[in-house]
């Protein structure tokens, strides 16, 4: 496996990787875990910073940031900016990060109508009105893919990207090759 490391580009210290899920379903993270036993090889090459796997709350300086999900609220924007500030390479992982995905299908509706429908008109949830606790992040008028807000270096499509695609992508990247997926690994669904 050490052969994969391009010693000049990546000195033999572990690559620090952060991951997060913004407006996503954690499906991309689950698919990441589907690399199964290969994660043992991977863990020789990388160490995790902020990630649902570590429970580290804030991202420190990292080599690689993997972003699942698009931007549907203010919190998503803060997290994305934190990642962009600290990660040398930022990757949009999965359909939602890349084109907004399922959450973006609310974009042809006015957010005010959505909130009104959910919290005021619809029976069941209508008791308290639209939640206004300052602890809660406010939703954005529209859902955005992450490349509309920060510069994104790589894109890894799929809903979710298959484990083999994630593995191919990461091993390419770790070896200093521009990642390519090819037939069977590149898909949008």
């Amino acid at each position: 496996m050490n052969a994969l490391i391009n010693a000049t580009l990546f000195p033999p210290k572990k690559l620090r990787v952060a991951t997060t899920s913004l407006a996503g379903c954690f499906g991309c993270h689950m698919s990441f875990l589907d690399i199964d036993e290969r994660i043992l090889k991977l863990i020789e090459l990388i160490e995790f910073d902020r990630s649902p796997l570590t429970d580290i709350k804030h991202c420190g300086p990292c080599d690689l940031g993997l972003i699942e999900g698009g931007l549907c609220n203010a919190e998503n924007v803060h997290v994305l900016r934190e990642f962009r500030t600290h990660c040398k390479i930022l990757v949009a992982v999965g359909a939602c990060a890349i084109n907004g995905g399922l959450p973006a299908q609310r974009n042809h509706l006015d957010l005010r109508d959505v909130l009104e429908e959910v919290y005021q008109t619809e029976p069941g949830l209508s008791h308290g009105g639209v939640p206004n606790d300052p602890e809660l992040p406010l939703p954005l008028n529209k859902v955005h893919p992450i490349h509309e807000v920060v510069k994104v270096d790589y894109f890894l499509p799929g809903c979710p990207p298959p484990a083999d695609a994630i593995w191919k992508f990461l091993t390419d990247l770790l070896a200093g090759r521009t990642p390519t997926l090819g037939h069977g690994l590149l898909h949008y669904d």
């Binding site: 957010l111 005010r112 939640p131 939703p139 008028n141 509309e148």
Partner: peptide, 26 residues
């Protein structure tokens, strides 16, 4: 650096209107 085409603060306008919030986190 790369900049978004839209005003991020303005992108919270509808939620502010519906919640009546104007705190820093809003």
């Amino acid at each position: 650096d790369y900049e978004p085409a839209f005003d991020l603060d303005a992108a919270l306008s509808q939620a502010r209107q519906m919640t009546g919030r104007d705190d820093a986190a809003a």
